[in-house]
Amino acid sequence: MLKSLAMPIFKVLFIIVVFMHPVLSHSDIRQQLTVSTDLATEGYVTLNWDDFEGDEVSVNLQVATDQSFQTLVRDLKLRGQKQVHLSGFTDGSYFVRLVDDERQLLTNEVSFQVKHRDLQMAWLLFAVGLVLFVLLLFSIIRFTHQNK
């Protein structure tokens, strides 16, 4: 009886080992990647991910403008860090993922949008600032002169 059960048991074990192996050997597969904001109004974001095994594990952070990652705008090789701050993005939608050196996916994919603040509002604030500044400069010069 034992002999007759051995083969089926062996087959089951074989299936488990073969098909579960990627999960067993990559206990860190699909680490959680998170982005600091969905909408960046200044063109910068901070990305965080979980620790991978060992400080010296090398990962590649890819940022693309399309979901299929055909058009990469950043392809960074990182080691020894689980956070990165990226800046200087222009308006648009961006998709991010972490892959290993064989381009195997290590994390979930995240996305964020960059929409810079209204330029007219910016110029309005600039104008307000300039007027205030000139007023202050004029006041200090005039008051100093009057008090001599």
């Binding site: 109004t41 200044e42 063109g43 705008v73 950043r74 800046s87 200087g88 993005f89 222009t90 810079h116 603040r117 209204d118 330029l119 509002m121 910016a122 110029w123 604030l125 600039f126 307000v128 600032g129 300039l130 205030l132 500044f133």
Partner: peptide, 23 residues
């Protein structure tokens, strides 16, 4: 190539930042 917005003199948040930082 990688941070084009940083060279943009019409960067809205940066324009807002200028006099704010002065004051």
């Amino acid at each position: 190539r990688e941070q084009p917005q940083l060279l943009n003199l019409l960067f809205p948040a940066a324009i807002m930042f200028l006099f704010n930082n002065i004051f």
